[in-house]
Design a binder for these strands. Sequence first.
RNA 1: ACGCCUGUAGCUCAGGGGAUAGAGCAACGGACUUCUAAUCCGUGGGUCGUAGGUUCGAAUCCUACCAGGCGUGCCA
Length: 564
Amino acid sequence: MQMFREEIMRLLEANVPLDREQIAAELETPPNPQMGDFAFPCFKLAKTLRKSPAAIAAELAEKLPASELFAQIEAKGPYLNFFCDRKKLAQITVESILKQKERYGWTDLGKDKTIVIDFSAPNIAKPFGIGHLRSTVIGHSLYRIYQALGYRCVGINHLGDWGTQFGKLIVAYRMWGSEEQLKNNAIDHLYQLYVRFHSEAETRPELEDEARAWFKKLEDGDREAYELWQRFRQLSLEEFKRIYAILGVEFDSYQGESFYNEMLDDTVKMVEEAGLVSKSEGALIVDLSEEGMPPCLLRKQDGATLYATRDLCAAIYRYKTYNFTQALYVVGAEQALHFQQVFTVLKKMGYDWAERCIHVPFGLIRFKEGKMSTRKGTLIFLEDVLQRATELAKQIIQEKNPTLENKEEVALQVGVGAVIFGDLINDRIKNIEFDWDKVLDFSGETAPYVQYAHARICSILRKAEGWPAAYDATLLTGHEEQAVIGLLARFTDTIVRAAAANKPSIVARYVVDVAAEFNKFYHQCPVLHADPELRNARLALIDAVRQVLVNGLWLLGIAAPKEM
RNA sequence: ACGCCUGUAGCUCAGGGGAUAGAGCAACGGACUUCUAAUCCGUGGGUCGUAGGUUCGAAUCCUACCAGGCGUGCCA
């Protein structure tokens, strides 16, 4: 596709008072394929050339020399529409996909650049809820999207393994904890303790003070506190890793909040030395009233640090360690102010890289009744969701394809894929209402829909048995074939756009589009029973579709089973 | 009270300042002796929250208002 775009730039450059970049920026895709593959709107030129847009378009259509890449260049009202040479487009697209394979769609835009992505970051000693899914899957997908762009990616799981909640947990465990239950099911037990703490604290507010005191002890290195914390952390981490394995998610670093403990004093000192610190109501703060923000708290009255302190510290550490081009924080939108404050403090400290720190926010997952709350115990466990989705997938396989060999594995790929996709398909900024019916609906714009298209292709290719490598893609001139090819050619563009907006949903939508176009083709055009020449060409085409679906699903962190 | 985000079909949502605003779900009607019907085809369905403004052109940008969500110093 890039080839065609550059050709347009070359053709227009000589005939229009705009440079290449300006032309590229103006270029758009017509709403309807019958109007061509590219459109150049002439409205803006109307002013400088003092002619009507339609006249300019007509004139350009007349003036432009023929190009072997374009079958037709015609004026349609105020637009100059370019029709790619169908045969060339088919040839170039199919050939480059089959040649580049799993690298098709990749670029080197991020060459020699490093991007640090902070995502998932579950809280230790709390169950992995459906709420953590968002950060995890969005972050993981962005990781792969940037990888496809050629970036060096660093995925950091900034575990919530430090903070006042451990004071609460220690208090609760000392009062109601059971060694046995902790051994059997750590997360479950800790979760119950956490919920109980909050319900009891409503009538006994002194518990909150106790919790704060225990956290302070923990920060000061108290042995009992430290050992409990260590156990809670270890047991939780094992649990999380099990879930990450199911999701197929990996990290380059598990350095959570506690990792920065030793550096916090230095960080506070650095902020002080920058002359930004003041004392207010017994707390140590950075005043941000000039920026129109509430102050950023570095130390509480009792001297204990806060999450802003740790985020400042972590950002500085990460810059030193990774020398990143960009640092993304895939964290809920409710923390927008927090990140604004942290980034502003960094900037005030004189770090010009502060503006390369970007909060990638996302909306809440909510019930019809409202927000989920760990404290109240109204949490939906991710594992339950994955399990139910997997069970449903298994049930459907049992119905539709009872002879399938690795049912368990495929059911897991389909079920988990459905859950991941259900999250990624939506614009991340929007709140999602959790709805079992929707999670368990495998039709329409879903992962199973895409996976199914992929499985069908694999099935055809399997049955084709040793089809010849030689094919003539110029035979692919049918309406359905061209629609598919046009989409395949836009894969790279899609990845670039998704990265620019930090929105995996763009890739998810694209992948659905490809599957939908393939399905239309599938119903309209026989492959195996076509004439030999056409058969080979169509086999090559669907192999290319297969590859793009695999690559696209990979970017989303979703498996592509060959049979289902 | 202030700040940020959201408002598009009955529901869930796409929509890169441009051509006739699109999908999925749900409803209804069709297509499996055929490459897997988790599919496809068709029908109905819209004051793009409201009012102004910028522009040759606004669902898209700006302002005000309305509605919902989130946030606003010792949680993260």
